[in-house]
Design a protein around this nucleic acid. Structure first.
Lengths: 341, 341
DNA sequence: CTGAAAGCGCTAACAT
DNA sequence: ATGTTAGCGCTTTCAG
């Protein structure tokens, strides 16, 4: 006997009550005789009654769902953000529809449209590396869809954001390299359209400027954000007349790719070339890679809270929350006096 | 003007048609004049009409959602399975509610109940490491909830499963160690209640038996499945009178933990101790860990297909699909003649 | 305290 | 080809 067919109607007729009374008994308790309420509850349990949320949602014009769109969730970063999100929203009775765009802006678009069709009440988004769906998000803003962007944002868009100060932490990382005594610091940048790429490049330039080091264009290369792309960077950098003695990579995957590629060439890290990453990853940690760790769970939690607030009141002013991060120094970057020779 | 309030009623009255006609125009096309159909479509676009799925779902008594419950999705393994799942079900118009139990059986229970309350049409599950919710899943089977279990299964439960032959691949791995000339092979096993723990232990024992190697109880230790737990294993194994020269770990995280711990002690891999893992991970790959790779995407896809079939016809016989895997031999295990000395 | 009735937005007989 | 009507399961006035 599949319990799925039991409705309040069955309970009502079994008890000789009206469906209205049953509904009242099942929900809040105002205006209901305690005794009947208990009879209803007992019968409901007996029949394995399960409320039909869809009916309730139709009536209330909500569905307690939010959508999340991230570029990928294979690596720890977005999964941790998602866990933070779920922790908050589940507590408020919300479910999360998670989509990954696999770094494809057309899939991202499809995902967002699917979520819209599913009538999610709000969206948390981190955009793909080419950031091509400006029009879509502009329309959503116009349609007053509650949204929060995290990590990879669209600065031109007037929406809630949760980020870290990529520029500042890139600065700190490069400053650390400078203070370690590295003289020729290269930067492997990410996809040019990405907000984080621009910010981290800015930080790199800021640091050079702050220490009076002239910028050398040939030390900057846009390689993207994937580990496999690091090889291109190393191929290029290692044949420069003035070979860099340190590399600041846009993120940990690229930095790890660099380390593997450098090792393959018999170069020692950090004696021959130092490497620093960004957005500390478990792999980077194991490889003793200097990197900036982001408060991933926190990002998710804050974003979720902002979204719920916006769902509750769609007239709140747009807000950007900037969270703290941390530069973790490891053996991939060492001051001169601590390096082996 | 929030487009969210437009219903077929508005379209109907704007056009002087009945809502039935509008509905017909919007959906399939039987019994509808092409001209009116186009008028309706045009008006719908003009008004930014979006159908209310909830109403449709209520009527059709389905909601095009399935639930997925996994122990975690921080590492690549379950995320890849999930991507496989989504690829299949999205194509069929289904959305996926993803929950992670964080290896807690009480959270797992809560997740499943939430998904049930959300009225998902089916469930894909990989159980937590203590596998404590037998009663829950038994009830779901009784209630005829379509379900497929993947990777971590409950063998006592009569449900669809998608797995690899853990026993066989563990055998192959240990056989490889034996053939490499390792004489004293330890096994760090996972949580005792886990199906994969038992199967992989079986495979280990099978291999020893096949090569006439006596089992030494003290070479088997249950350490769990997490990287941090490897230290216990190494602490224990490295002080045995007959110290093992090879370790077969229940999975990659434990194997990686072993490698790090052995290195810390100045032991060389594989010269002093060889290490093999299971369920190949990106980190393991980078560390040149011998391991068995599982067809994660495929697992997800097959599971999704089975689930959709079961949703379409709930009287299909229960099925267990066993997929192929692959032993990838790397530098953490080498034959005698290839090892450095 | 309880029941009757309306209606959330949509689809699907059943008429015409 | 189109309109009328009933109803999916539930909540919520409005009466009593």
């Amino acid at each position: 006997m599949p319990s799925s067919k039991i409705t309040i109607k069955e309970i009502a007729s079994a008890l000789g009550l009206s469906i209205a009374t049953v509904s009242r008994a099942l929900n809040g308790s105002y205006d209901i005789h305690l005794e009947t309420k208990e009879k209803v509850l007992a019968k409901a349990r007996e029949l394995h009654y399960k409320p039909n949320i869809q009916a309730r949602n139709l009536l209330k014009r909500r569905n307690n769902m939010i959508g999340v769109v991230v570029p990928e969730f294979i690596t720890f970063f977005f999964p941790e953000i998602i866990i933070g999100i779920q922790e908050v929203v589940n507590k408020h009775g919300y479910q999360v529809l998670i989509c990954q765009s696999n770094e494809s802006s057309s899939l991202e678009r499809k995902n967002v449209e699917m979520l819209e069709d599913s009538m999610v009440e709000g969206l948390i988004v981190s955009v793909t590396k080419d950031s091509k769906n400006m029009d879509l998000y502009e329309r959503l803003v116009q349609d007053r869809m509650p949204m929060v962007f995290v990590n990879r944002v669209l600065p031109q868009l007037n929406v809630n954001q949760v980020v870290i100060d990529d520029r500042k932490w890139a600065f700190q990382t490069v400053e650390h390299l400078i203070k370690c005594g590295y003289k020729c610091i290269a930067h492997l940048a990410g996809n040019p359209d990405l907000s984080v790429t621009k910010e981290r490049l800015h930080g790199y330039l800021d640091a050079l400027a702050a220490y009076g080091i002239p910028v050398q264009e040939q030390l900057i290369m846009y390689v993207g954000i994937q580990q496999e792309r690091a090889k291109d960077g190393i191929d290029y950098l290692m044949v420069l007349k003035e070979r860099p003695d340190a590399i600041f990579a846009v993120n940990d995957p690229v930095a790890v790719g660099c380390m593997l590629e450098l090792r393959k060439r018999g170069l020692r890290i950090p004696e021959d070339v130092a490497v620093a990453g960004f957005s500390e990853s478990p792999i980077g940690k194991i490889m003793e890679l200097t990197s900036v760790s982001q408060p991933t769970f926190e990002i998710g939690k804050i974003a979720a809270e902002m979204l719920l607030k916006q769902i509750a009141n769609n007239d709140l002013p747009v807000e950007t929350v900037v969270l703290e991060a941390k530069l973790n120094i490891r053996n991939s970057t060492l001051p001169l006096n601590k390096r082996a020779h």
